[in-house]
Nucleic acid binder design. Sequence first.
RNA 1: GGAGAGGUGGCCGAGCGGCUUAAGGCAACGGUUUGCUAAACCGUCGUAGGGGAUAAACCCCUACCCCGGGUUCGAAUCCCGGCCUCUCCGCCA
Length: 425
Amino acid sequence: MIDIKVIRENPEKFKTASAAKHFNVDIDKLIEVDAELKVIKQKLQDISTDKNRIGKSIPKLAPDEKQAAMSQLAELKENELKYNDELKELQPQFDELMQQVPQPADDDVPLGKDDTENIEIRKEGQIREFDFEPKDHLQLGIDLGIIDIERGVKLAGSRNYFLKGDGALLHWAVLRFSIDLMVNKGYTPMSVPLLMKDEAMRGTGYYPGAEEQTYRMEKDQLNLVGTAEVPLTAYHMGEILDEAELPIKVVGLSSCFRREAGAAGKDTYGLYRIHQFDKVEQVVICENSDDESLKYHNEILANSEAVLQGLGLPYRVVNVCTGDLGRGQAKKFDIETWMPSRENYCETHSASKFYEFQARRMNLRYKDSKTKKNSFCHTLNNTVIASPRVLIPIMELYQNADGSITIPEVLRPYMNNKEVIKKQS
RNA sequence: GGAGAGGUGGCCGAGCGGCUUAAGGCAACGGUUUGCUAAACCGUCGUAGGGGAUAAACCCCUACCCCGGGUUCGAAUCCCGGCCUCUCCGCCA
């Protein structure tokens, strides 16, 4: 959410910013409603002042004076009722419009309409040349008996899967390796709840907007998370933190659930786009400073690169363009990892910077020692690893001519020091 | 799931229709005293919105005693609904 005062000062900025991000918000209407609301609230406040004054004097009044006071009060109440009705109509309008106003993108974010116009910043690692006909991850997985999509679909519907034997172990190894790496960098590991209240969904900016992408437990009014970003970022929702606690750096592992509504027929092959996966996520909550945000944005990007470098995977970093940014994101780096079967770099990580957008929505503040005031925190997050999507490049790039897969060295300690995944007898 | 108790400021805790501008204590901060520390004493000590003054400090108004409704001239206090916590019992990975 954006500070209404900032919008009042420069509505034009928010019009162009919204247009650039392809969010359709009626800023003019917002300004108009805001102005009306301000008048109504002022009137209501004046009425309260009068009511309080008269109410307090009543016990001290003579009976005849009391009569006059009462009739005066009745009149005030009538007015109050009228303005209250107007307030009840306008306030929800205002709230809804405010929820919609996007965070303007940073100046160094490229203008663009969608992910095709993201700008590559740099490439890292060598793309492997095969001297044999490589298999794709699914073929490898089926032949090795470590991926079973058929039965996943049989039991859970499309975009579901089982990982078996070394496939399951590889999946967990990747997650554990990533967690350990982050813990070594000083991030606090967190195990998190996966069912979130609407409040947390709104606070992180997923609602309104992502309802269609979310599995919902209607009976309990809870939502299955699509990412641990929600519980990790909203952890201190509504709190006032000590400045000394900042920055808060956490890493959490969660299963992630996504309906993938509107993606019918897209990426249906293999383990790329699935309804349920596991992800290690990093979140930073820091003080209200653009410099700090910038610093940690770079830090969380570097953390994820360290994971990919540890795994020996080639990737590139992309500056996500305005049209592909989420509502709350001021800037976003995607990391795309090379996937041989897709003959392309494909998104595996997403590092987002929000400034105070999320913190304002969830009322997450800290006591600022300089201003002595409560300030909204800044929040950032990035994928550390998402599996099984990352198993695609791992399996495909580490495959051998005989159909076996060499296990990346850093994962071996998590797999009983096994070096190669061979067909299981 | 059944029965009961309760949610008050950073924390503890009183208040149970107007004397509350939420007592008192603890913690914190500033000061006085002091060889240092400690103690004592004095003062400050919530959040948000609006208005005023200003270089700043500040002043005035409104709302907030878990949340939302209601009763009343007037609600922390009474009534209804919700959420949460605790205790006991039952069940259970």
